[in-house]
Design a protein around this nucleic acid. Structure first.
Length: 598
RNA sequence: GGUCGGGUAGCUCAGCUGGAUAGAGCAACAGCCUUCUAAGCUGUGGGUCAUGGGUUCGAAUCCCAUCUCGAUCACCA
């Protein structure tokens, strides 16, 4: 029973006694008291005026009087306009802190056998180029969401669908075959995904030359030239050969994909994300085709004269959607159907969540209907965790214009900036090189992750390289710093031989700042719950920031190790320790590590 | 044009299940280290919450209209 719940019930009781009417729980609006007023929680009394038939001040006064008699949690109160500010008794706060101290898993719910299973798909890269800033947002959101769902007591299967087949990968393959001279990651020292990406760019470059030539020499329109360029035709031939199982093409495909996977693994590992089960489009698209044919027979879809297969979604207020091309090859949707089927065969999934950018909102609207029509009961309840695009100060990222921010480069830059900052401030003197490197890694990546996760996932976000690298203010390192400070305090207390008690006497004195901090800590579980319900890591990030800001003020205003009253000292240390614990858990939900010192 | 999502301080963002004087950070300016980590703390300036109407005791928040930005509506992925 939380403080709010207890109070709500008492307030309902009091109001019924006073005015002879029972009231709905929803009318009891409790909110944290604003800083400028005395009190911990505030009851808004406007909703009760109709029943009390008195003015706001008088009503608040009456409720306050009665509540103070009725509920021992309320130590005193004051009334300002229609707001009843309640002060909660000191021993409630100590009680609360004692509970937090005793709970190692504070804020999280245990996963049990009966927990529902959530499958979360995220990352979903194409195997023709390295990961960039957009993928970073996807990966961080996906991983964090999984952490948050687990903390809410759900079983989670993290999954990835790798788009490993199709014309895009044939383009890289063809360019490598024509211009690569047998270059390998080993021979060039390039990371595999970057190497393959370079050939994808090379294809585009050569292709453009051909298109231009066709337009100039043969007088073709741009549209025609783009269709007829020999390189594109050759890539299409290659795709056909791949589908027919041509050994040479398949061997090249396997070789180049393996390079890419080695590169991706490195990037994922560094980013700190992982998967429980990886699916490959090359292994699911045939199932998708079969499923579409099945739907066609059942009359869920229809075939046009040219042989292509479509879903008519006009009765759902949408358009018609292609599922199989005239030549029988599959499209994006087909593959998603096949993947969905395999997943639901292998796992007992209660909820499927797709972490995919908002540019695909329409796609998932359609997918949901199509799966439903195919008889997948879970189809209509699938969740498209739709996040906004990452924009740069100069506009959208465009790979063709070279404005893409590469994931590996970005991580390098963040870590080296963290390293420089540490060196400048001279805080890590006496640490080994290994320790320094690790702290720089934690801070650099933490800065990047926090920067991307603190904004509402649904919204487009601006990525300004200069700001993202800032380590002051509302940033990951700000939170790191507070954690490191607290750990330092606790180390010093231990070195001095100070024994931390496991709990505190409830009757001790607590200042307003301190009880505010406990109140903040007490809110953590509901923040985790809300973040899970709304699929929003940003709520956790913003909570962590508020908590840390509050703690830094406390740290500044109160002495801790130098406090002479042993009981107060113990209290402040336990309070600090609890703040550190919650910071660590909250950051963990964001996929961010915290340093012991910095 | 249809559908969907945005518009809050110079910039980046909170606040949006209606509640007190709309909050942070950055940037600018002014303070605080012989004292537990100054990657910190304190203060100053900065707002027609896109616009207009409506509902309400009360609207940044809910409803309608308008303006504006973006995404999407491909035999692309």
């Amino acid at each position: 029973m939380t403080l709010e719940n207890t109070l709500t019930q008492s307030i309902r009781k009091v109001i019924e006694n006073l005015y002879g009417q029972s009231i709905d729980e929803k009318l009891v609006q409790l909110q944290a008291t604003r800083k400028e007023f005395e009190g911990d929680l505030t009851l808004v009394v406007f909703p009760f005026l109709k029943i009390s038939k008195k003015n706001p001040e008088l009503t608040a006064q009456e409720i306050g009087d009665a509540l103070q008699k009725e509920e021992s949690l309320v130590s005193k109160f004051n009334v300002i306009k229609g707001f009843l500010n309640l002060s909660i008794s000191k021993n409630h706060w100590i009680d609360t802190l004692n509970v937090i101290v005793a709970d190692d898993q504070y804020g999280t719910v245990e996963v049990t056998e009966q927990s529902p299973l959530y499958m979360v798909e995220y990352s979903s890269p194409n195997t023709n180029k390295p990961l960039h800033l957009g993928h970073i947002r996807n990966n961080l959101l996906g991983f964090s969401l999984c952490q948050i769902l687990k903390a809410n007591g759900y079983k989670v299967v993290k999954t990835n669908i790798v788009n490993d087949r199709g014309i895009h990968i044939c383009k890289s393959m063809l360019a490598w075959k024509l211009f690569g001279n047998g270059e390998t990651p080993e021979s060039s020292g390039k990371k595999g995904d970057h190497l393959v990406g370079d050939y994808y760019v090379r294809f585009d470059k050569e292709y453009k030359v051909q298109v231009k030539e066709l337009m100039e020499k043969k007088g073709l329109s741009e549209e025609e030239a783009k269709k007829q360029a020999p390189l594109l035709l050759e890539a299409q031939t290659m795709l056909k050969k791949w589908e027919d199982g041509d050994p040479e093409v398949v061997a090249l495909w396997e070789k180049m994909n393996s390079w890419v996977y080695a590169g991706f693994d490195q990037t994922y590992k560094r980013l700190g994300v992982s998967f429980d089960k990886i699916y490959y489009e090359s292994q699911t698209y045939l199932d998708g085709k079969a499923k579409v044919m099945e739907g066609l027979e059942k009359g869920a879809f229809y075939r046009r004269e040219d042989g292509s297969v479509w879903a008519d979604l006009t009765q759902n207020g949408l358009d018609e959607k292609l599922l199989l091309r005239t030549d029988g090859t599959s499209v994006y949707m087909t593959q998603d159907i096949g993947t969905a089927q395999q997943r639901f065969k292998e796992y007992n999934i209660d909820k499927m969540i797709y972490v995919v950018g908002n540019e695909q909102n329409y796609h998932f609207q359609v997918l949901s209907i199509v799966l439903d029509r195919l008889g997948f009961s879970w189809g209509k309840d699938l969740v498209h965790f739709s996040y906004g695009m990452v924009e740069l100060p100069e506009g959208k990222m465009k790979s063709r214009e070279g404005t893409v921010v590469d994931a590996d480069d970005l991580m390098d830059e963040m870590v080296s900036t963290a390293r420089e900052t540490s060196d400048e401030l001279g805080k890590l003197e006496g640490c080994t090189e290994e320790e320094i490197a690790n702290i720089a890694r934690i801070c650099g990546l933490g800065a990047l992750k926090y920067f991307m996760l603190k904004v509402d996932p649904r919204k487009n976000m601006m990525f300004n390289p200069k700001e993202s690298i800032d380590f002051n203010g509302n940033t990951g390192p700000f939170i790191h710093y507070t954690h490191a400070r607290i750990r330092s305090l606790l180390r010093k207390a231990a070195e001095a031989g100070f024994q931390l008690p496991s709990s505190l006497p409830v009757d001790m004195e607590v200042s307003e700042k301190e009880s505010n901090l406990i109140q903040n800590l007490a809110n953590f579980p509901s923040v985790v719950r809300q973040a899970g319900a709304e699929y929003s890591p940003a709520l956790v990030a913003n909570y962590a920031y508020e908590l840390v800001k509050e703690y830094n003020q406390f740290y500044h205003d109160f002495s801790i190790l130098k406090e002479e009253d042993e009981q107060k000292k113990a209290f402040r240390l336990l309070l600090s320790q609890s703040v550190a614990k919650v910071i660590k858990t909250a950051m963990g939900l964001l996929g961010i590590e915290v340093p012991e010192r910095m």
